[in-house]
Structures are given as structure tokens and as C-alpha cells.
Write a protein that binds this DNA or RNA. Structure first.
Lengths: 201, 201
DNA sequence: TATTATAATGACTTAATAGTCATATTTCAA
DNA sequence: TTGAAATATGACTATTAAGTCATTATAATA
């Protein structure tokens, strides 16, 4: 990896750490530079502006997660098994980056700070993920595993919301360091709710 | 209603309209004053600071919704029926204030802008609502309507997430003006998913 | 080594906006 | 009618932080 790439990654990593420590809204380019141990002007050699930097911070994590999920889900057969793996891998990713997601989910849930262009990138990423899930659900409907009367696209959004909400609930209750068994339990909990609902019969 | 209260409400309403038009992040005290047709200093006679104003904007809507829901749910018997009414009333409230929630849900999903104190109020409001729902779920577990192996508190958070996500999905697809029938359909969709899941059997 | 190209610096400029306060206007009771 | 209290005003101050760019340092090359 070249020196240039190293500095690029250094700035990204420093921004990430800072966001975990102080949140998005308190992040300034001065602080990023200080954290990275470089001058502010240097940050602007690698990122167009603050919006660009934040965009890259958000997207880099997402791409890593999505790759992991696709590999693992690709090894599974059947829509149910695919969704189980997807949920499990998504939860794992959240807990491996728990302090970052704590900020994203609890402290500043959102993308206020992003300008129009970066917001569009953000929405496109989300759509890529939900489309991927919607395809799995569709295959499950076609194979007879899932009900025919559900909207696969909307239901994909619902599943993502459930995964996220499970993490938010744990974070709100101070549960940050989940053991492997706890992650399995959380996976089952969400899978159960998503598959069977809360009703008894 | 006194003149003072009228001006207080005027500022609140103007802020609300502005948020619908330009979003939270672009909201300035100058714009609020201009929208209300008063001087900026006057805004500070009725609200301690910007944070206080935003806090009041958010809380006033929530209290109205919560009151409505409690009245309607109070008339129902059985946990299932109570949840059905709650979902329906919550969805109604979202669509009656659709442009405000569009901003909240899509454009700036969150509360970045709130300082610590107001963020706590926000979290407390959310907790009051989820606690209320958790109690209904608990009663459903005790009555045998719902499964015994679910965490009533966590599941309450899940339900709120599903309601919110349903609205987000519609907003993302440009569906803002829902007819009464569409609201009923959305209610059934969420109730179905929450009660039965997506599985066939 | 000398020269050019590339990378880095950080003081400075600029812009935005929250909050203040001396002054002006309005209200209302005596 | 009058003057004191309550309201309202908006120009002004103070702060914060993004982005720039002339200058300096480092690396590459001949």
C-alpha cells in the first residue's frame, strides 16, 4: 500500500475514532487533523470537503459488511437459512463496530450532516442492501417458504429495522460486549419474530 | 387563551412549518422569527434557547399522539385488539403530520441537534411510549394470546420500529396522501407481520 | 549535488448564526 | 391622562468552524 493510501486510511481511521468518542456533530476538520497528527490542509488533499470525508467514513464500513454478508449468505441454501445467516452476520458487524454504531444509532442516529449528494449515496447504499434482502424474500415466497401476501421490498426494510432496533435496545440497556452466545440468541430472537411473530398459534 | 400563549403557539407553529419546508439543520432563529413575523429577540422571550424550542416542537406533537392512542386503546379489550388500535392510531398520527415526519424520518432522521438535556427528554418520551406498549404485550403473554418466550420490553421497541419503517417505506416511494383504506391496509400489514411473521405455517 | 515535483503546513479569511441588550412600543391600572 | 410595567425590537457581539493558499519541507530524478 502506497504512502498516499496510508494517509488516506489514517484520516479515515482517525475520523472514525473521533466519531466514536465525540459524535458526528462535534466533529471538526481541525479535530480530525489533530487526531491524525497532521495539518488541516493535508486533510483537504485527500478529501474534497467535510461532506466527502463523512461519506467515505460511512461507506467504507458498509461495503465491508455487505461483502461479508454476501459471502456467507451465498453458502446457504433456502431463503430461511439465507436470512438467518444475514441477520447473524449483520449483528456481528454491528457489535464488532459497537462504539461507532452506538453513536450512529443512539447519539445522532442520522445523516443530518450530509449534503444532498452524500445523502443520495447513503440512500443508494441502503437500497442496495434492502434490494438484496428483498430478493431473498422473493425467492422464499416462490419456494413456498414465506407467505404470498407480503410485499417483499417493504418486508426487507422491516427486517433491517428489526436488526437495528435489537442493537439499539441492547445499547440503551448498556449491553455493549456481547458474547458469541448472546449474538446467537439475538439472531434467533429476531428470526423468530420475523418468521413467526409474537402470536401463540 | 391569553395573548402570551398565542405568541408561544405562533412560534411553535412557525417552527413546525419551517421544519417541514427546510428541515431541522437549516432552521435558524432568524428564520423562525421571520416566519412568525416577529423579531428574533421575541423568540427568546418565550423559549430559553434554540434547543428548548426544538424540544418543545418535538414534545408537543408526541403528547397529542400519546393522548389519542391512550383514549382509543383504553376502549379496547384484549391485547391483540389494543395493539391493533395502537398501530392504527399511530399510523394516522404520522399521516396527519406527514410532512413533518417526512423530515424527521427521511431527511434528518434524528436528534443530532439536541443538546444533552433535550436528548434526555426525547429518550424519556420514547421510553414512556415503549413502556406503555410493553405493558400491553405483557398482558397478552399472561392472557395466553402471545408467546411466553418473548421479551415484552424489547418487542415493544420492535413494534415501534415496524410502524416507523412502514411510513418510511411509503415516504420513500412518494406515498404521502394515504386514503383511509390504505391506512387500514398498512395497519393490517404491520399487525400481520408482528403477530404471524412471514412464515407460511 | 542540484533541480524539479510532490506533499504538507497552519495562519488566515470568510461565513454563518446563536444569543444579547439598550432602546422603543404597547398595555393597563390608578 | 399618565407613567410604570410588560412586551417587542433588531443591530450588534461573540463564537465557531469550514475551507484557502502562500510558504516550507520532503522526495524523486537527473
Amino acid at each position: 500500500m502506497s504512502e498516499i493510501q496510508d494517509k488516506y486510511e489514517l484520516i479515515l481511521a482517525s475520523s472514525r475514532k473521533l466519531i466514536e468518542e465525540i459524535g458526528f456533530s462535534a466533529l471538526t476538520m481541525d479535530k480530525v487533523a489533530q487526531k491524525a497528527g497532521i495539518a488541516k490542509g493535508t486533510v483537504y488533499l485527500y478529501f474534497k470537503d467535510k461532506d466527502d470525508l463523512l461519506e467515505k467514513v460511512l461507506s467504507s464500513g458498509f461495503e465491508k459488511m455487505f461483502e461479508r454478508i454476501k459471502i456467507r449468505v451465498g453458502n446457504e441454501n433456502g431463503a430461511f437459512n439465507k436470512l438467518q445467516s444475514l441477520i447473524n452476520e449483520n449483528i456481528r458487524h454491528i457489535y464488532e463496530n459497537r462504539y461507532f454504531f452506538k453513536t450512529i444509532f443512539l447519539d445522532e442516529v442520522n445523516v443530518v450532516f450530509l449534503k444532498k449528494k452524500s445523502k443520495e449515496s447513503y440512500n443508494l447504499r441502503r437500497k442496495r442492501y434492502t434490494d438484496y434482502i428483498a430478493d431473498i424474500i422473493k425467492s422464499g415466497i416462490e419456494s413456498g417458504e414465506f407467505r404470498k401476501d407480503i410485499n417483499n421490498s417493504k418486508t426487507a426494510y422491516m427486517l433491517v429495522a428489526l436488526i437495528k432496533t435489537g442493537a439499539i435496545y441492547n445499547f440503551l440497556n448498556g449491553m455493549f460486549d456481547l458474547t458469541s452466545e448472546m449474538i446467537e440468541k439475538d439472531t434467533e430472537e429476531i428470526l423468530n419474530l420475523f418468521m413467526r411473530g409474537i402470536s401463540v398459534k
